[in-house]
């Protein structure tokens, strides 16, 4: 078996001693894979991204990047790690320093990493054209460019460092429907052209279904289901996944799933339910679920599900 690009082993993150944002994450991402991460408020998907990009330190557990523990990697070569792992933040306009022009923002990574300026600028020009960023945008300030352009600037800043892994937090949030397709096509093309690995966080299930190869579903800081995207959307095994998928309203009545409306609200990560953390809202809850916490089981098909009574395809 080849070494995964990223491997989380039993990662816990606790803030202020009581907020258990991540409660035991096991996840590996293979090189070249496109993994989608879905979940609602409190699911821990943002924290997971921050742990992966070394912005938040895990309270316990290990993360390995290309076989090397993350802490050791950072100690050995902090800037090298930064080059290899890039992140696109949700609000692209706000992720650009407001008093700098786009040109300066794009050239910043070169300075930070001490890269050859002439070569770097030539590469910027190639990437700018590849990304379809108009030349006149370079002389503008972030608030003067459109949301789509700001995303391209952020992508350019990441690509100039030739990363292996790109974490994209809600890449289409705030974009109009009429332009989101163009951006997603671009991300897919870049994946192939630059041999990238993606972790894509999105609440838009249609987007995840369309562009990812594997989907990971999180609930209250834990993975409840992980499976190849097509299989997961075709036949979800975890009741939470099933409910989540059913919430996506389709314009085509023929493609509409019967909506499963969960009762109650998402519990707080500070005060987790007993047993299976989902039992308070599960439509299929059994007495055992209230006391016995199910482990994340890897099935023979390779699918993973954290449920005592996983759903079977009807």
């Amino acid at each position: 078996m080849t070494t995964p690009l990223v491997a989380f082993r039993d990662i816990h993150v606790t803030f202020a001693g009581r907020v258990h944002a991540l409660a035991g994450i096991d996840l590996s991402i293979a090189e070249g894979e496109i993994v989608g991460l879905v979940g609602e408020s409190g699911s821990g998907k943002t924290t997971l991204c921050k742990v992966l990009t070394a912005m938040v330190r895990a309270t316990s557990g290990t993360i390995e990047v290309a076989g090397e523990p993350l802490a050791a990697r950072i100690k050995r070569d902090r800037l090298g790690f930064r080059r290899s792992t890039q992140m696109l933040l949700q609000d692209a306009v706000a992720s650009l320093s407001p008093r700098m022009r786009v040109r300066a923002l794009i050239e910043e990574p070169l300075t930070i990493h001490g890269l050859n300026a002439a070569e770097g600028k030539a590469r910027i020009e190639v990437l700018r054209q590849r990304l379809g960023l108009p030349a006149e945008a370079l002389d503008k300030y972030p608030h003067q460019i459109s949301g789509g352009q700001a995303r391209r600037v952020a992508i350019l800043r990441a690509l100039i460092l030739a990363p292996q892994l790109i974490v994209a937090d809600e890449p289409t949030a705030g974009l109009d429907v009429s332009v989101q397709g163009e951006l997603l096509n671009l991300l897919l093309d870049l994946h192939a052209e630059f041999a990238l690995t993606y972790l894509i966080v999105s609440h838009n299930l249609a987007v995840v279904r369309r562009i990812t190869q594997r989907t990971v579903v999180m609930y209250l800081g834990r993975i409840v289901e992980a499976a190849p995207t097509a299989a997961l959307f075709a036949a979800p095994r975890h009741p939470y996944t099933a409910a989540l998928l059913s919430t996506h309203p389709s314009v085509d009545p023929a493609k509409r799933r019967e909506r499963i409306v969960l009762q109650g609200e998402i519990p707080s990560v500070i005060d987790r339910p007993s047993g299976c953390h989902f039992h308070t809202r599960c439509p299929h809850v059994q007495p055992r679920c209230r006391v016995d916490d199910p482990p994340l089981v890897t099935e023979t098909s390779g699918r993973q599900v954290r449920c005592h009574f996983p759903l079977t395809a009807a």
Binding site: V179, G181, E182, R210, V251, K255
Partner: peptide, 19 residues
Amino acid sequence: ALLACEIDDGDTGRLTSIA
């Protein structure tokens, strides 16, 4: 055009957008 941009279950291939 807006309808064509909707990403729906079962669609494959390139995504549509309005230039």
